[in-house]
């Protein structure tokens, strides 16, 4: 356990000056900032639509979710999986890392956990900033009616679901980036997977849930049905695609460990 904590601490120390680390903070800040400034600049047009508070929030949340969920999240996950491994490939440091008196499992699990944490922080910030910027908009433009509905439970559940849906992708990409030191192979496979996921997720293919890359899309598609619910936050978190994502994550995480044990440092 101490071995894992130490490795995790070292991951943080090594990465804190890299783009990958800052991306998890900057990405939500930039996207939420852009959407909010759109709502600020185009406020008259939106106010003229006379949305009820709940729909206004959905409209606003949907803008961030739509961009984030379909394209950015899969690529962000691919990039995270790549960068935590690439820091060792690039500096040729696998050999020193595995020559330290630490369990190989701790080294591996710490890397995986660190990538997981970065994705969690990113999505947490997305939810928090959406909430905070919505209320900031209300403060700046009092004509908005953001204050008449509390979206916090909805946001929390949506982003949690999105986080869980990304775990399958993370595990696949983590293994690919562990094996290959270059950017193109994991990125190329991830790109093809993501496109496949978006297509199969959107056309509603029966077996789309078996492709991890389609999970975020499936989560977003299900979000469209939320509008029909009387209580917006009344949707289930653990649906078929989430279970599948978790199973993929668990199986591939274990498989990845066996790859690490067998990995010969030539």
């Amino acid at each position: 356990m101490r071995s894992l904590y130490i490795s995790l601490l070292s991951e943080f120390y090594k990465s804190r000056k890299t783009l990958a680390f800052w991306a998890s903070i900057l990405l939500p800040l930039i996207i939420c900032g852009l959407i909010s400034s759109g709502f600020y600049g185009g406020s008259e047009k939106i106010i003229n639509q006379h949305y009820p508070s709940m729909l206004l929030w959905l409209h606003y949340i949907g803008a961030a979710l739509g961009v984030m969920g379909v394209l950015i999240l899969p690529f962000y996950v691919i990039f995270m999986a790549f960068s935590v491994n690439n820091i060792e490939h690039k500096n040729d440091t696998w050999k020193t890392l595995f020559a330290q008196p630490l369990h190989k499992f701790s080294i591996y699990a710490a890397k995986y956990l660190f990538a997981l944490m970065l994705i969690f922080v990113c999505l947490l910030l997305f939810g928090t900033l959406t909430f905070a910027f919505g209320h900031l908009l209300q403060f700046l433009i009092p004509k908005y009616n953001f204050n008449q509905f509390d979206p916090s439970l909805l946001l929390a559940k949506f982003y949690l679901k999105l986080f869980l849906s990304s775990l399958g992708i993370l595990s696949i990409q983590f293994i690919l980036s562990l094996i290959w030191g270059d950017f193109l192979k994991p990125m190329g496979i991830g790109f093809i997977g993501t496109i496949m996921g978006i297509i199969t997720g959107n056309v509603g293919w029966k077996y789309a849930y078996l492709i991890p890359y389609s999970h975020p899309s499936l989560v977003l598609n299900s979000s469209k049905a939320v509008k029909k619910l009387t209580n917006l936050s009344d949707f289930p978190i653990f649906t078929q695609e989430i279970y599948t994502s978790l199973v993929y994550a668990a199986v591939l995480f274990i498989l990845g460990y066996f790859i690490v044990i067998k990995k010969s440092i030539k």
Partner: peptide, 22 residues
Amino acid sequence: VEQPAIYGHLSGKENLINRCLL
């Protein structure tokens, strides 16, 4: 072993601190 394995984006001191952490 072979070329020294050093994290290029960190300073020399940070490389050593990272090893101390580990």
